[in-house]
Write a protein that binds this DNA or RNA. Structure first.
Lengths: 203, 203, 203, 203
DNA sequence: CATGAATGAGGCTTCATTCAT
DNA sequence: GATGAATGAAGCCTCATTCAT
């Protein structure tokens, strides 16, 4: 039934790719990109090392794919915001809780940090992440310029700054989590919301 | 000249250690912890690979020492703030420029990110960084509680939150730099200063 | 149509074998025995990798079969000579042009050299090639002993020597081609024909 | 005594390089370039695999060095001829015996064939061998043009042809040896010398 | 104190071969 | 008969670490 036939099944191929991606994400998170060996990844993926190379050209292609997957996930989050009704400030403040949760997630954070530090020495990874970020900033700006935003008429550079600071804030939470594992969502939110309010209102 | 005894010159030993630390910082910055080999470090330090092991047990011990040194540097920054006169808000807003500069520095950032992602999988590194952070938060709180602070009388959790958010903000700048290399200090400051003002004033 | 029985069609089997042999010859020529993978061969043969193993036990069996086929081809060349009329010297000199062409052919040469160097370490290949050579020398001697040969009455060892030298000469052309790709047929023939004349006349 | 000191000893380095070269020649001969693994080479060289890479960038660099070594050996042979007195024909006929011996040497031949077939698919190896051959032909032509040569005044293309044929002849002996291991020097010489005489005299 | 030659485990990747379908 | 997904041993190479000098 589920396994109809094995002959050139794109369904299967896709599922195998995901298997590898999941396993690799896991391993990179736990051991880092360099620390995780293909052997471990293949074992985690319940697949022979050699077979992984039917789906990915090499180890780097795997992290590339992981980044791409991340991108898609992020876009969907932005889409949620873009489709939300009402004043932007409220929408964003409501979204804060989830945003903090996501960025305090220790597992996701470790993987993201791993990719970021890999980017510092791996041109290709850097470019992928940067392309991703360009898009994220574009979507964010769209959000800030839409109806119901208190900052929709501010000049470009000021929006750029607000976006950078806001992104820094959330990105920085991943770092906080590593440096201060006790940090919890509620604590963060106390000061975070006022800051978000500042960033989404004219100064 | 100074103590001509041949055996164990602690002066020399210390200088040799620093030589290695400087070289290693440089290499880790450029190539990352895993990317930098002992061979390269030893060449940069003008010292044989073997000899490095007279000062450090292994590669990991080197990054531990670098972290420790980083800590000391950070404390001196805090001391500057603690000794500054006048209303805290002004002191901090003045300090912002330097703070942004430091956290946008691409080289330092790369090394820091490297250490952070190493922390995710290396208990010892994690503990060192966390200990450092505990101290940093303690010093920061001291700052917020001192005379001339508009938030000195706020309850503990609220201060904790403000500190975490502020730290996240600056830490996040390192990430921004990787994801958006064009980002410059002036742009960041536009929105950053209002945010700092928010964080240092009662809501 | 021909014998519609589904099971074991020797006709088809034979054609499949040839398909593989042609593909493999091609691949070995281009990439060498070790350089050509079964994947490439199977793609060239328009056949799945697994299916090849229905016709050949393993990769080595393929090169064995190729050698065998080469042998047959060579015999047919000799037969042409054996059936030619007229004084041997003339026949051979006429055949020279084709012989040079064949041995300067870069593709065939690459494959032959491949097999020769494989022979140096692969007993089975060596024996096949040697058996082939024994037969070639036998046919050559038949040629030299026939009517119209100026050397037909010379003692055995002398004929053996002439044969060996002549074979060395043509074999060596394959090597020349690798070492001196500019070498062309006309140039070779200038000195080759006098040498052949020497070899086919009493000293 | 022999081991004066280990500090940066170019003597030692050279001897280590040769150790590797000898071992690799041996292994390539026995197993072929692809068949011989670095592990086997390192074991044969009594040296760890890793250490080999202190002397050679990679496996290919080893075969390059072997080819270079071969070149030098060949040049010294030509020098012997160039320095010999008397009519060229006599010099060469005298040199024949050694030449045949060398080209019938089964070990050297296997290695040479290996390199030749590797050249068919490895550009760099091919270029090295070809450069070598250009030089060999140049030296040979020098020989044919010198005093005491019966062919010194022949036109260029005719000399080129004679050289190519002569080189083919000797190169072909390596092949003969593989295909006909019984072949011995004396047998070859019977017909070889008249051929050489033909090649070194006007037709 | 200092060197750098030497080691060898382990990393990524390839590829001949198998087998369920 | 035929497929191609899957295996895993083995290949080349790197690099942290050791040790004789």
């Amino acid at each position: 039934m589920t396994t109809k036939t094995r002959r050139q099944d794109p369904q299967l191929a896709q599922s195998r790719r995901l298997q590898v991606l999941d396993a690799a994400s896991d391993c990179f998170r736990r051991r880092g990109y360099h620390g995780a060996g293909m052997a471990e990844i293949s074992k985690t993926a319940l697949m022979s090392p050699g077979h992984i190379y039917n789906y990915f050209d090499n180890k780097e292609a795997i992290i590339d794919a992981i980044i791409e997957r991340d991108m898609e996930e992020m876009f969907s989050v932005f889409n949620t915001f873009l489709q939300a009704e009402g004043p932007l400030l409220d929408v964003m403040l409501d979204g804060c809780d989830d945003g903090v949760d996501k960025h305090l997630d220790v597992e996701k954070g470790a993987l993201k940090l791993e990719m970021l530090s890999e980017a510092a020495r791996n041109e290709k990874v850097a470019l992928a992440l940067q392309a991703n970020d360009v898009e994220a900033r574009r979507l964010m700006k769209q959000l800030l310029r839409r109806d119901g935003s208190l900052v929709r008429d501010l000049p470009e550079p000021e929006l750029d700054s607000r976006i950078s600071v806001m992104f820094a804030l959330f990105g920085g939470l991943m770092i906080r989590r590593v440096l201060n594992p006790q940090l919890d969502r509620e604590t963060v939110l106390i000061a975070l919301k006022p800051v978000i309010r500042t960033l989404l209102s004219p100064f």
